[in-house]
Structures are given as structure tokens and as C-alpha cells.
Write a protein that binds this DNA or RNA. Structure first.
Length: 562
RNA sequence: UGGCCCCUCGUCCAAUGGCAGGACACCGGACUUUGGAUCCGGUAAUCUUGGUUCGAAUCCAAGGGGGCCAACCA
């Protein structure tokens, strides 16, 4: 707010200029204008951070305005979801408003336009209107109703509102120019008849404004100064300006467009997300694989990480696609500094310590945070003769640079002892069933008094004390970086990653987490960040969602060797 | 093909006529009881061609490439 030297995006620079010049003669006003027909996603988060951020930085106001002008797709459940997600992201709006509350005013504006000869009632069919609009390379032709007398237009408009006509019988159009090079300006439709129940207005209205008619005028009614939207609305700016001018607003708001957010391996279109949900490709709007805020929340992503991410990617006018790594970095960077570490074995392999007394067990103290995280706390973890380690941490014939357990090799058990593998036990099928190891009692806590070093440290749990749990390992939902760009005629559904969710049913976790509340976040050491699932996890049936893996330079090493 | 918008390291964003910089990614190294984190170092870009200018990523022109617009969706 005070950092005038901080680098700013082109929009903030513009707002700063406008504030300095007193251009609008009123405080900065922004708005976030979702249509309540779907759940907000990370792309909306970018817009939310921008609009709410600017209002805060410039001591302005931000409105949450639902652009609810289409009764057939909208629902209260979406307005509730949107409000919840904005709050969760950490923002508070100054006013909660609805375009549907402006229907009366919009109707009056329509009358004004008709009286000025700037709008008319067209009675052509939908098909005729489309035909007469021309194409991008060919001008359109006027409707035969275009020159109806004002009085007739007024009468028709009134009767449209009164419900005298069926859907599609008439529309109100702006009278501009059928040959306009900007298609949007070829007498755009303003009001259409829709005998449909509106989730807020009920059956009070049967004519509904279209986006172009409602949006700019709603901004103007609210005294918005800076109306920020995405690039695809660039052409609409012309009708926006035309309408606020014709209706007579002084110092009307001005629209500025910025590039929408795209992230590799994600789809951001609400239409596509809705399809994923309705077709059951995912388990709902809050499926942790979804780019929705609800999905990310359930996945374990924090609002702070999302806000940091939005800061990182910046705001510009060039279309772009952000690498997934940029997003994952923001997530790890935030989680690293806030969540406790615990031990969880994903694919258990039994280890028997042949020189550890049978029936004995002990408690080892394990800090929750590593030395470089400024948080404190620890818990005791049980240790005994039979343990589980991860199958991936043992190889019978290890390649070079494999620093983990192998026959004859010594490794450290995290917070525990050094162990050495002495024997590999196989089942009749020849698969490794169990390892026999010896432990060195002198290395309790993880250090050898003789200064002996080990290459690797692996995680483990005590077989008798560990708690079975379910792990949901999420991967990218799509196999291609740009699922929106699947070739013509092919469905983006075909690009879905069949392994976007891998469920592990028999993971084993240290018992300390058993009674933590659902929604608790952890780092499972050496594995990744996880959150206990708020929907399905309960005491006795623990379920964890993997938020993001840890960076894995061993995987990278392996890939290079391959 | 009409109109409009955009084009800087692999990716995202800066540089607002004056030394092309940051973040992520990548590659090395240090450190390490997480192959995590951290620290240090490195590779790496102005779409092309002209023009204006003492000086151009920046201004102009042409070309190339990408995107948006022809829903009674937003």
C-alpha cells in the first residue's frame, strides 16, 4: 500500500495514475462479477486477488456482484459456494450485490434507449437474426422491424415485460450498425423473453438482460471505477462504453482486460468443469483433482499458497500458460514452513530386527519440524522388533547412487537406529516378502558414537503400533499440457489421465496422528504433503489426500539413467 | 479472408527511448538425521526486416506467428 517503488502490473499503474489525476472523482471501485453457475477455480482466484487487492491497496471498495442474468443455468448453491471460496481465500467484499436486483433499472434504461431511437424491438426469429448479422467478413443487413416507430417499440417492450409473448417472440436490440466491423456492435440484443423461474427473482420477470446490457450498466450503477475482465471481452468494451454513454452516466467506469490464467494440465473453462462433474469423471466440484478452489482446499492447498502463486504469475495482457511446477512450488513453499512432519509408509515391507528383543518396545522422540523450520514440538514414536519400511527403499540389486537399504548395507531409520540388512526372505513366487536386519543399539537417535556415516535415511513405522490408512495419490487430471487445445473433433475427455487418482488402501502411519482432527495437514517425510480428507476420513478409517509430492531428485536421477 | 488484441530466457513476469532483470524450471557445488529445505554459482531471451534516433525490447512501417469476435451464454 505504501510501496510506491514496488513493481506493479499495468493495471495497478493505471489505477495509480487515475487516483493521482482524480479522473473519476470518486474512490476506487472494483468488483468481482461471477455468474452463479459453477464453482470458482484458480483462474477466478487470479481475478479475485486482483480486484480485492486493488481495492485494498488504493483504499477503495470492492463489490461481490453476482451476474445472475440467465435464469436457466444459475443456482443459489453456486452463490453460496462462491462466497465460501472468496472468504476462504482470505478476502472480504464491501457489498454483496446482484445484477438481478437491477432488472427494474435496466428496464428503465431500455425505455430511455427506445425513446432516443437507440433501441428497438425486433420480431425476427432467432435464425433470421443470426442470418442477418452477416459474418466477420460480410456486413449484416437490417431487420425489417428495425425502423418501428418509438411508440410501437414502447408498447411491445411493455407487453414483453407483461408476459404477453412466448419465449423468442421478440427481443430488444440496440440500434447501432449492422455493418459494424466489430460483430458485437451489429445491433446487439439487450433483452430476451424467458419464461423461466429465476433462483432469486422467482417469476417476477420474464424478460432478462443479456451480458452486454447488464454488465457495464451494473458497474455504472454501483459507481465502479475500474472494471477488470479477461481478454475475450475486449470486443465487448465498445458496447460497454456505448451503453453507459447513451444512458447518460457521468464519469462511467472503464473496462480493462487482462490475460486469463492457464496452467498446464488443467482445464479452466466452467463448461468443461461442469461436464467433468456431471459425467462423473471426477467425484464432484470439490474433487481434489479439480482446479476449483473447493477441490484445492480439499486437496490441502492453502489460501496463502494460492495468493502467493497469483502474485508470482503477475498480470499482463499477453496470453500465457503457466507451468504446473510454478504452482507446485508455491504450494510446497508454503506447506514447508507450516506443517508437522510424520512418518507414513506407503507400500509396507516388513523388516524384522533379529537382534532386537522379542516383545520389547520403546518410545523415540521425534521433532515435528526440521532444523530449518522455525517451529517447535515433538512427539514420541514407538519402536519395536518388527517394522515396516517402504518397498521403494529397498533394492536387492541397487544401481549406483541408490542410497537406501540393500543386502549388506547399513542405513539410518529416521529418528531411530542404524540397521543393516542381513537377509532377504522371498515368498514362493519369488517376491520379496520380508527383510531380516540387525540394528546397532549404540546408534539410538540416529548418530553413531564412532562417527560412522550412512548414505541414507529412510522412514519406517512399528508394525505393531502403526495405523492402517488410505492414501489418495493424485496426479495431473490430464495427460496433455493444454487439454483445451485437443484437436478439432476430438473430445477433451479423451485427454483425461486414467491414473489421476491412485488409491493406496494399506499404507501404515505412525499412531500419533490417529486422533487429529480431519483436515489436518502433514508432511509425510520423504513422500509428500498430505491432508486428512474432510469428507471421508474418520477415527479408525483414516484417509489422506496427497496435496503435492516432495521434490524428488532421486526420481530425476533415475530418469536420467533410463 | 473484416475488426481488434498480443509476441522478451524452456515457462511466467519486469525493464515506461539510456548497462535486458526477477521468479519457476534446468545444470553444477556446499550443507544435510527427509535424495526435503537452505545457501552459492551457472546456462538461458527481445519473432523477422526495414525506418526514426546519438541511442530502440520500447516509437513507426511491412512481414511472420498466436489469440478473440459471427449464442436470445457470460
Amino acid at each position: 500500500m505504501t510501496q510506491e517503488t514496488a513493481r506493479r502490473d499495468f493495471i495497478r499503474e493505471m489505477v495509480a495514475r487515475d487516483v493521482a489525476s482524480g479522473k473519476f472523482g470518486r474512490p476506487v471501485g472494483t468488483r468481482f462479477p461471477p455468474e452463479p453457475n459453477g464453482y470458482p477455480h484458480i483462474g477466478h482466484a487470479k481475478s479475485i486477488c486482483l480486484n480485492f487487492g486493488i481495492a485494498r491497496e488504493f483504499n477503495g471498495k470492492v463489490n461481490l456482484r453476482f451476474d445472475d442474468t440467465n435464469p436457466s443455468t444459475e443456482d443459489v448453491k453456486y452463490v453460496e459456494a462462491i462466497k465460501e471460496d472468496i472468504r476462504w481465500l482470505g478476502f472480504q467484499w464491501d457489498s454483496e450485490l446482484y445484477a438481478s436486483d437491477y432488472f427494474e433499472q435496466l428496464y428503465e434504461f431500455a425505455v430511455v434507449l427506445v425513446r432516443k431511437g437507440k433501441a428497438y424491438v425486433d420480431s425476427e426469429t432467432e435464425e433470421e437474426i443470426r442470418q442477418h448479422r452477416g459474418t466477420v467478413t460480410r456486413p449484416g443487413t437490417p431487420s425489417k422491424y428495425r425502423d418501428r416507430p418509438v411508440e410501437e417499440n414502447l408498447d411491445l417492450l411493455e407487453r414483453m415485460r407483461a408476459g404477453e409473448f412466448p419465449d423468442g417472440a421478440h427481443v430488444l436490440r440496440a440500434r447501432i450498425d449492422l455493418a459494424h466491423p466489430n460483430m458485437i456492435m451489429r445491433d446487439p440484443l439487450l433483452l430476451r423473453i424467458r419464461h423461466a423461474h429465476h433462483y432469486r427473482r422467482g417469476d417476477a420477470w420474464c424478460i432478462y438482460p443479456l451480458y452486454d446490457f447488464a454488465h457495464g450498466l451494473s458497474d455504472a450503477i454501483e459507481g465502479i471505477t475500474h472494471s477488470l475482465c479477461t481478454l475475450e471481452f475486449k470486443d465487448n468494451r465498445e458496447i460497454y462504453d456505448w451503453l453507459v454513454r447513451e444512458v447518460g452516466f457521468e464519469n462511467p467506469p472503464e473496462q480493462t482486460e487482462f490475460a486469463r490464467l492457464n496452467i498446464d494440465y488443467m482445464v479452466m473453462s466452467k463448461r468443461k468443469l461442469l461436464r467433468l462433474v456431471t459425467e462423473g469423471q471426477v467425484r464432484g466440484w470439490d474433487d481434489p483433482r479439480m482446479p476449483t478452489l473447493a477441490g484445492m482446499r480439499r486437496r490441502g492447498v492453502t489460501p496463502e499458497a494460492i495468493r502467493t502463486f497469483c502474485d508470482t504469475i503477475g498480470v499482463a495482457r499477453a496470453e500465457s500458460r503457466v507451468e504446473l511446477a510454478t504452482f507446485e512450488h508455491a504450494v510446497r513453499d508454503d506447506l514447508n514452513l507450516r506443517v508437522p512432519r510424520v512418518l507414513c509408509v506407503v507400500k509396507p515391507l516388513k523388516v524384522v530386527l533379529t537382534n532386537y528383543p522379542e516383545g520389547k518396545s520403546e518410545e523415540l522422540e521425534a521433532p515435528y519440524y526440521p532444523h530449518d523450520v522455525p517451529l517447535t514440538g515433538s512427539r514420541m514414536i514407538p519402536f519395536s522388533r518388527e517394522l515396516y519400511i517402504d518397498r521403494d527403499d529397498f533394492m536387492e540389486n541397487p544401481p549406483r547412487k541408490f542410497f537406501r537399504l540393500a543386502p549388506g548395507r547399513e542405513v539410518r531409520l529416521r529418528y531411530g537406529y542404524f540397521i543393516t540388512c542381513t537377509e532377504v526372505i522371498k515368498n514362493p513366487a519369488g517376491e520379496i516378502a520380508e527383510l531380516r536386519c540387525t540394528y546397532d543399539p549404540a546408534t539410538k537417535g540416529g548418530d553413531a558414537p564412532d562417527g560412522r556415516k550412512v548414505q541414507g535415511t529412510i522412514h519406517w513405522v512399528s508394525a505393531a503400533h502403526a495405523v492402517a490408512c488410505e492414501l489418495r495419490l493424485y496426479h495431473r487430471l490430464f495427460n496433455v499440457p493444454d487439454p483445451d487445445a485437443v484437436s478439432e473433433g476430438r473430445d477433451f475427455i479423451a485427454a483425461l489421465n486414467p491414473e489421476s487418482l491412485v488409491v493406496v488402501h494399506d499404507a501404515r502411519i505412525e499412531p500419533s496422528v490417529a486422533r487429529d482432527p480431519v483436515g489436518s495437514r502433514y508432511q509425510f517425510e520423504r513422500t509428500g504433503y498430505f491432508i486428512s480428507d474432510v469428507v471421508d476420513s474418520r477415527p479408525g478409517t483414516l484417509v489422506f489426500n496427497r496435496t503435492v509430492t516432495l521434490k524428488d531428485s532421486w526420481q530425476k536421477q533415475k530418469a536420467k539413467g533410463a
